[in-house]
Design a binder for these strands. Structure first.
Lengths: 106, 106
DNA sequence: AAAATCTGCAACCAAACGGTTGCATATATG
DNA sequence: CATATATGCAACCGTTTGGTTGCAGATTTT
């Protein structure tokens, strides 16, 4: 069973859950109202996000509040870093083409 | 069949392929030597990366050169953007705690 | 105390995933 | 021309995934 943030954000429902929790902490029940699936399915997703340490839980009586733990998300960002140079490069190339065109026109 | 960059980078082998191609373009055969799986398995991964438009192919005779298309990777980066503010915030909070401790000590 | 509510677990199921092997096609080499 | 090499497709297989339903435990509410 793979349990890393890359696998966690592969599912669109889990991505939506993370976005919702980025706005405000919520209980599983409240989260489930935003989706077209059963409450239990959302619970399963929360379990996975929990195991990936992307969310944190605080019990309040019979309710459980889930909130975002953005730290672990940085792992994805750090992995992307090695490609940012490349797409930056493409922008610069485009820039160059544009300035060349500008020069030619004038 | 989901075909988006999030699902593409969920698999560790595909992530490694992308990293290798970020360094230099390669043929499927050359790529396969870096992994402990069959050439066909790598071919399958390349097909998926192709469908996600994360790689581009240029035929050279009987060989095919695969190279990275970093543009599409930006989609992931853009999605991450909405969380960057949050983890930045955490750093600032830590910063605050540290300066408070420093003040107390002096 | 009884009923209602919130949550998570277990069992089950169809579909997708990641791998394998065998084969067909196209190109390069002897 | 015959052989070797590079690639991709198809069929198959065990495991994982994402969903369902039913149920049990804990906490509120009445």
């Amino acid at each position: 069973m793979r349990r890393d943030p890359f696998q966690a954000i592969a599912d669109p429902t889990r991505r939506s859950i993370l976005v919702l929790l980025a706005v405000q902490a919520m209980t599983p029940g409240a989260l489930a109202t935003h989706f077209d699936t059963s409450r239990q399915a959302i619970s399963k997703h929360l379990r996975i996000l929990s195991e990936c340490e992307l969310v944190r839980t605080v019990p309040h009586g019979r309710e459980v509040e889930y909130s975002l733990r953005p730290e672990r998300m940085q792992e994805i960002d750090r992995w992307l870093d090695q490609f940012k140079r490349l797409w930056q490069q493409r922008f610069e190339q485009l820039d160059e083409v544009l300035t060349t065109l500008k020069k030619e026109r004038s």
